[in-house]
């Protein structure tokens, strides 16, 4: 750190002297060599090229902007959409008995679900109250144990529960071997997915153009000679 507090030139001089290193000429704020004046025409051409390149990218971006990744589940198959007239099911005339039966069944079901829901809520609230009471009693017994009981149980966090089945798994059943075919449609068009890839190809294109330009210049020079 304190090395930097010395004047750099002095430091350099002394050190080089001691170790017999050669250094470049010291300028002491002398103006550097004048910059070569570039041709205004070539500059303009270059700028034009740049602008055109960006315009192209912007055009493409605008073109693909609305193209989103299609969700096959939302779209019905074209083959079926064409055959919709053929696939119409003949409508069934419902008798009045049938309609009343359906209405009654719907009503019963709604009642059943409502009752079930209310029962669930009451059971839950009772369980909560029971736990609160238990915690209060524990607080009376020991404050420390109460604090411990309020801690979050981290062992529960990946909570896994295997759902109930209709019948037990059959140990004698020999499951037939199947084949695996990947029928997933990968979306490769548009910017939605591979924008970065696209930008990379654009970059590559830019560099090939620059190289071609340089090569042309070199050839021109060679011709001049």
């Amino acid at each position: 750190m304190n090395i930097l507090s010395y004047s750099p030139s002095i430091f350099l001089l002394r050190n080089t002297f001691n170790r017999s290193f050669h250094i470049s000429a010291i300028n002491y704020a002398l103006p550097t060599k004048a910059k070569k004046k570039a041709d205004p025409m070539t500059d303009k051409i270059r700028e034009d090229r740049k602008r055109r390149r960006y315009e192209k990218v912007i055009d493409k971006l605008e073109k693909f902007k609305l193209q989103l990744k299609p969700i096959h589940e939302y779209e019905s198959e074209r083959r079926i959409l064409k055959e919709l007239d053929v696939r119409k099911r003949s409508t069934v005339e419902l008798t009045s008995e049938e309609t009343t039966r359906r209405l009654m069944l719907n009503r019963d079901w709604a009642k059943h679900k409502h009752r079930q829901h209310q029962q669930e809520i009451t059971l839950m609230s009772r369980a909560f109250k029971s736990q609160e009471d238990a915690l209060e009693q524990l607080k009376l017994e020991s404050e420390e144990l109460y604090d411990k009981a309020l801690q979050v149980d981290s062992k529960l966090i990946p909570f896994i529960r295997r759902g109930p089945l209709y019948s037990l798994p059959n140990s004698n059943y020999d499951a037939p071997d199947g084949d695996y075919f990947d029928t997933t449609n990968y979306f490769t068009k548009g910017f939605g997915v591979n924008f970065m890839d696209h930008m990379k190809t654009m970059e590559r294109q830019k560099w090939t153009e620059i190289r071609a330009e340089r090569r042309a210049k070199k050839e021109e020079k060679a011709d001049d000679k």
């Binding site: 736990q131 238990a134 009981a149 309020l150 149980d153 529960l156």
Partner: peptide
């Protein structure tokens, strides 16, 4: 299930 007692 949990660190807290559920009933007493």
């Amino acid at each position: 299930s949990g660190n807290a007692p559920l009933a007493y």
